[in-house]
């Protein structure tokens, strides 16, 4: 015979189908009818924006497009917003590589969203992708030491020498800024070890929100100029004035997190209710 459970016991054990169902509703409502919660710009996003904005004309940026498909919904909007900024700002050269195997595919997707031609930017002149380079930290060290010895072609397999953007690019010293979008801790920390420490390359890092606590000490120690999570893409879109997926997600994130707070409160009430009422 099934044991009769008390109110607190049932409250503590709400079926996950109900919890996920409510969560799904909390996701969908603001997507259908946006609420318009404000998107305040945090100091680190502002610092990131200012760093790119203040680069002298002709500066060369190394971009590690190192996120995986699973991290695209979070880091994709941030990467797209940053590329918009680089092209809008003008006079900068963006050389991308990938330490993630899916990187080149996702870079293509991001470029389709950015549409560089609207800013007059040309592939091989203003931006390029030199491909996925295997080895993670070994790849970073190799590219930093001698880029041409590591890879002689771009991600399409065309020789690098045919592209004007690659003129004079030899090693880490050829770059004025390092920007990393990654879903891997080995990558975000590896760049500190292989580029920031030996070559003193200024470093902007964007990681998954869950990786941020691990990377914060590097920012505090000055090894990273600005650290953002992909969840801050809305702030970047606001600064760059190109509203897209990031801003759209702000309402959803606020509402769903409020629901999680409610879940935590209900869970605690049920726990203490059960404890003090004897079940």
């Amino acid at each position: 015979m099934r044991e009769k459970r008390g109110f607190w016991s049932r409250l503590e054990d709400i079926p996950r189908e109900v919890l996920y169902g409510l969560l799904l509703i909390a996701f969908i409502i603001p997507m259908i009818k946006p609420i318009g919660f404000p998107v305040p710009v945090s100091p680190e996003t502002q610092k990131w924006y200012d760093t790119i904005d203040k680069l002298p004309a002709g500066s060369v940026i190394m971009i590690d497009f190192g996120y995986s498909g699973g991290g695209e919904p979070e880091l994709g909007p941030m990467a797209v917003a940053v590329y918009h900024h680089i092209f809008k700002r003008g006079g900068l050269k963006a050389i991308a590589m990938s330490t993630s195997i899916e990187g080149p595919l996702l870079w293509d997707k991001a470029m389709a969203e950015v549409n560089p031609s609207q800013y007059g930017a040309q592939y091989g002149v203003d931006y390029i992708h030199i491909g996925y380079i295997a080895g993670t930290e070994t790849a970073m060290a190799a590219v930093g030491k001698d880029l041409r010895a590591t890879t002689s072609t771009d991600y399409k397999g065309n020789p690098l020498d045919q592209y004007p953007i690659m003129e004079g690019i030899k090693d880490a010293s050829s770059f004025d800024l390092l920007i990393v979008f990654t879903t891997g801790g080995d990558q975000s920390e590896g760049w500190v070890r292989q580029w920031v420490t030996p070559y003193k390359t200024p470093y902007l890092c964007s990681v998954l929100a869950m990786m941020k606590p691990t990377m914060l000490p590097y920012q505090k120690a000055g090894q990273i100029i600005a650290l953002t999570s992909g969840a801050q893409a809305g702030e970047m879109e606001y600064l760059v004035k190109v509203p897209a997926r990031g801003i759209k997600s702000a309402d959803v994130m606020t509402l769903t997190h409020l629901l999680i707070v409610v879940y935590v409160i209900v869970g605690n009430i049920a726990y203490y209710g059960k404890k003090y009422s004897g079940g």
Binding site: E72, P73, G76, L208, M210, S229, G230, S249, V252
Partner: peptide, 12 residues
């Protein structure tokens, strides 16, 4: 932060 990351993925 992990919850935030996962929710971003679902949103995407």
């Amino acid at each position: 932060n992990t919850v935030l990351s996962r929710f971003q993925m679902i949103f995407g």
